[in-house]
Amino acid sequence: MIKVGSIIAVLLVALGGCRYPADVEDSLESVKSGHLHIGAIHNPPWVDCTEGNGPARGLEAELAEGLAARLDATIHWSCGPESQIIKALEQNQLQLAIGGLVHSPRTAEGIALSNPYYTSQKQIGFRSEADIPAEADTLSVGILRLDPLSLPLRELGADVRFVDDYQTANLPLAASDWQLEALGLTPGPWVLASEQHVWAAPPGENGWMMEIQTYLNSHKKGALRARLVELGREARQ
């Protein structure tokens, strides 16, 4: 017990002098020295990479600009597929990965995920309050091919239809709550899924992660949602 006590005491003394928690590879220091390398996954409206390796747009790109400004760093954008960006992150070639990443144990493997800073609910949207039925089992619901919602919809007993885009579809649509608002639809009472949005950092860079998390948590959920609705509306035009 004495041995253990002295180890803890030494640790506590050591931590008086420096940042706690600290990074293994000094990521935070390197960002503060001026350069923030971000891996951006094209996934509008979170991250829009249509400019190639130029500055990304979208909600998370805007948030990242804010973080960089806070730390006096210049962002170096690299756009690419998620699998590649995660691997580069794992090997410390990037300091941050963004692009609508959703918390899951599989994504968390090998890298560090932040705690969720925003949660989207997948719901069914109707043209008006009056169109919402009491039960979902008589519904035909439209979803995008890339939106994995057919399982929860079938569990509700609804008929799943695939639509090419939200505007031209003439049936109730299942999408994120902010997306429905952008489309001017009224959400029904069913929550099909929740997506917990996170950012990713290299593993073990706990000081850097604290900086990211503190920054993300400083944003009001309402303001984030309003911006998502705005970006959703812009995308329609």
Partner: peptide, 19 residues
């Protein structure tokens, strides 16, 4: 050489180290 990642958690409006 796996690294342990311990992030921050929000409690009562402040962010604390989850450690």
């Amino acid at each position: 050489q796996e690294r342990t990642s311990i992030g921050g958690i929000e409690l009562f409006g402040d962010t604390y180290w989850q450690g």
